[in-house]
Amino acid sequence: MTHSAMPNDADIFETLRLELRRGSLILAVLGQLRGEHYGYTLRKALADAGVEIDEGALYPMLRRLEDQGLLTSEWRVEERRNKRFYRLSEEGRVVLGRLVEEWTRLNASVDAILRGAPK
């Protein structure tokens, strides 16, 4: 009875983790698409690098990034099936560069805060 009203620690952690990951996933996807990929291999490549992303989130994200002009795509037959290949556009390259700068700066700042002695 007593524990039922308390929010679940695991739930809280999961929510915070998802929030933390959301922005970085876009960075990982854009970074990986400096080379050409179709959805399935992109997901595998990201997973191999240690960034798991589920299909349900990946495909809509790719579509959105393409709508925003950061990615280009084309349908091509490979391994007997029609596949949609994505790659970073010229504009995407510029935006990625700026995002990486921001990422590095933010990372350094957060790192400094976390490493610094608590005041």
């Binding site: 179709y38 349908w75 029609n82």
Partner: peptide, 14 residues
């Protein structure tokens, strides 16, 4: 059509 084709490829690859 486009989205379904892409999802089909993803599922079939899987």
């Amino acid at each position: 059509t486009d989205i379904v084709a892409e999802l089909r490829d993803e599922l079939m690859s899987g």
